[in-house]
Simulated assay, not measured.
Amino acid sequence: MSPFDLLLTPTTHDLGQFEVRRVLPARARRMIGPFIFVDEFGPAQLDLGAGMDVRPHPHINLATVTWLFEGAIDHRDSIGSHATIRPGQVNLMTAGRGIVHSERSPGAERAAGPRLYGMQTWLALPDGREEIDPAFEAVTDLPIVEDSRSRATVIMGELWGERAPTTTHSHTIYAEIVLGPGGCLPIEDDADERAVMLVGGEASVDGHALELYQLAVLAPGREMTLASKDGGRIMLLGGEAFETKRHVWWNFVSSSRERIEQAKADWREQRFPLVPGDTEERIPLPEGPPKTVTYP
């Protein structure tokens, strides 16, 4: 019996010096637990002096989670947060009723030729909490579960008896798993919905091979074993199933289409706040059918 309920192949966007692979939202599946948007980018080595520049843009009714395997990204937002994201640090930005942020390669990284390799995910906020105050946190004190052949970092939620201090707005699980040759780790039946993505090397679930960058939605109600013969890096994500539908338009997520229309008007009329230290540029509201997010 296959451990997979569904296999989702990402759409790849070639941005010249690096690729972004978007696997959620998909026509066949909108969400996995609270995860409504899943991007994997890199690995990539950019040219000297080049960098990533995601200009200021808005979000509502969601939380963004940035996790890097390599490289660094400067985050700034409209509530005054400024943090440099590096491997081992999770950045959680809760948009709530509205926030604006930018993501750029730091100057030192540009001078050396930036590395880019990581994950950007969005979590829909649950009913009754979509319009909470915006917030930001950068967390480095994350629990590690390891043995001689495997190492798992619990990024959000509770896994393998360890709980991350990262804020969760609904039941959420999120982890990076690095397996050495011959390594294995149990995948517990601890969430309504679970999925894994192989982001490097090779691995299998209950003997069924994972395809690189494909999101494998796991069958509910079963404990499974994640294993690797030669070594691999895998992301595990999921959480509680949402009963209320979420709508996505550009960088906006909400249970209300009317709320998204209001956010569109607010951004068009420049009623969102500015980002301190990054006020000279902004991504304009798309005129036609938008991509879910824009990478200049």
Rank of each mutant, 00 (worst) to 15 (best):
L7I: 15
P10Y: 12
T12C: 11
L15Q: 08
Q17R: 09
E19N: 14
R22F: 03
L24Q: 10
R29T: 12
R29C: 15
V38T: 13
E40C: 07
P43A: 10
A44V: 06
L46W: 07
M52V: 15
L62R: 10
T66G: 06
F69T: 08
E70C: 04
G71R: 08
I73F: 14
D77E: 14
T84G: 05
T84V: 15
G88Q: 09
V90C: 09
L92G: 01
A95Q: 09
G98T: 13
S102G: 14
G107C: 08
A108V: 10
R110L: 06
A111N: 05
G113S: 04
R115K: 14
L116S: 04
L116P: 03
Y117C: 01
G118T: 08
T121E: 07
E131Y: 09
I144S: 04
E146C: 07
R149Q: 11
S150V: 07
S150H: 13
S150F: 11
I155V: 12
G157A: 00
L159A: 05
W160E: 01
R163D: 02
P165L: 00
P165N: 01
H169F: 13
H171N: 10
T172G: 01
T172Y: 00
T172S: 01
I173R: 00
E176W: 06
I177V: 05
L179F: 05
C184D: 14
L185P: 01
P186G: 12
A191F: 07
D192H: 13
D192T: 12
A195Y: 01
V196S: 00
V196A: 00
M197S: 09
D206T: 11
H208D: 13
A209G: 06
A216W: 00
P220E: 10
P220S: 12
M235F: 12
E240C: 03
F242K: 02
R246W: 04
R246V: 15
H247Q: 08
W250M: 11
F252Q: 09
E258G: 01
E261A: 14
K264R: 06
A265I: 07
R268A: 14
P273N: 12
V275F: 04
P276A: 05
G277D: 11
G277P: 06
D278F: 04
T279M: 15
E281Y: 10
P284V: 01
P284Y: 02
P290D: 00
V293R: 13
T294Q: 15
T294P: 08
Y295P: 02
